[in-house]
Computed example of a mutant assay.
Amino acid sequence: MSEIEFGVDTFGGVTQDAQGIPVEHPQVIRDLIDDAVLADQLGLDFFGIGEHHRPDFAVSSPEMVLASIATLTKNIRLGSTVTVLSSDDPVRVYERFATLDAASNGRAEIVAGRGSFTESFPLFGYKLEDYEVLFEEKLDLLAKLVTEKPVTWEGSTRAGLRSQRVFPTTANGLRTWVGVGGSPESVIRTARHGFGLFLAIIGGSAQRFAPYVDLFERAQDEFGIPHKPVAVHSPGLVAPTDEEARELVHDGWLKMRTRMGQERGWPAPSPGDFEREIEHGALYVGSPETVAKKIAATLGVLKVNRFDFKYDQPVTHAAHQQSIGLYGEQVVPMVKDMIS
């Protein structure tokens, strides 16, 4: 990754039709396959899909959707954002993505994480009190598996392995990242295992994440590990004008923040929060020029190798397609000019 890449990603959030009625999950999945095809046609570098197990998100198996996308695209890299490793089996994760890598001719990536929701723990029979040990052990095993060498491993969360190989092998290895929300411990763990750092910046200014990028570099130096890439992921929507973009996003953003607050004990949004998050925080909403300036400013304060635009706001699919189109055709070229 010698120059900055630009991607898009989605959690597979349920969209709405022109009347504001939620779209059924099967159509949402078909629509985001179309989104990936458009992103590939626009020359974007990456398309990511997140794993969730709840009614407001349509995708519970990113690899299946990405495999469908692989047959319809040529160049764009394909990955999970994220795979909830804590409630999955690292061997199966490696096998599925190695298979995707073969089907896509070497374009697969893994972004492993603990996930921002916990529904998968009871769904797959895991205890929340094991939250930390599950992720630590499974990430350690995944780090050994992606070397594609015989693996010997012992842990408390699954059966051990003795000189075990896993298949299929890949042609050039699997680019692997760890999704991090912003804890120093997670950054150091990512460095120790030799993975790329995938920073999820979903609130507040990008500037406050600069110490994590510096910590990642220092930790790799201390561990004697060659520097791995850093990616940033933030939400937004591009429309022809600032006013149109804000109008499209506002109501859905307010409902989402209110719902998440009720689930997690956050305070309800205050008047002006939406505007402040656009002006000074992690919400990239506006015209192509507005969004391009904000991305360029982010790249000016963070030493990163890729910016991923999380485009799936609770709007219509047509608004998503318009947003991706404007991002690929106007925003990315403007950002490249600004940072050159």
Rank of each mutant, 00 (worst) to 15 (best):
D35E: 14
A191L: 00
S163D: 15
G272P: 01
T10K: 02
R208A: 10
Q321I: 11
V291M: 06
A206L: 13
V304E: 01
V93T: 15
W253Y: 02
T71R: 15
T99D: 11
T169Q: 12
V23S: 03
Q262Y: 06
I295H: 07
F216K: 11
S86I: 04
G48S: 02
R30G: 12
L197H: 00
V28N: 12
T118I: 13
D242F: 11
L66H: 00
L42D: 05
K144M: 10
H52N: 06
E289Q: 13
A268K: 14
A191N: 03
Y284G: 04
P150Y: 08
G203E: 13
G48D: 02
T169L: 14
A171G: 00
L161G: 05
P288I: 14
E5N: 10
P62Y: 02
L215F: 04
R77K: 14
L134K: 05
Q16G: 02
K293M: 03
T298P: 03
E63I: 15
G328C: 01
L38V: 10
V285F: 10
I33A: 13
F6K: 07
S61R: 12
D312E: 07
R162M: 13
A297V: 10
N305G: 15
G20A: 02
G300P: 07
A103W: 11
M64K: 11
A282Q: 00
H53C: 07
I21V: 14
K228I: 04
G204W: 07
K149G: 06
R162K: 15
G115P: 07
G12N: 08
A318N: 10
G106K: 00
M256F: 09
E217S: 13
A159D: 14
S68Y: 07
I324W: 08
R246F: 07
E129L: 09
A102W: 10
G286L: 07
E5K: 12
T157E: 09
I33E: 11
F223T: 09
R30Y: 09
R218F: 05
R77V: 10
A108I: 01
G48E: 03
P333I: 12
L142G: 00
Q330A: 11
V23D: 08
G286T: 08
E51G: 03
F121T: 08
T73M: 10
V151P: 01
I69A: 04
L237D: 01
G328E: 02
G179E: 05
T170P: 03
Y212H: 14
P271C: 06
E137I: 09
S163A: 15
I201W: 00
P288Y: 06
V28Q: 07
I4W: 08
T10H: 01
V8Y: 03
K255S: 12
L123N: 03
G160F: 03
Y131T: 05
T176F: 03
F11V: 13
I225K: 12
I324S: 09
I225A: 04
T81H: 00
Y126M: 13
H227Q: 15
E289N: 08
V180Y: 09
A103V: 15
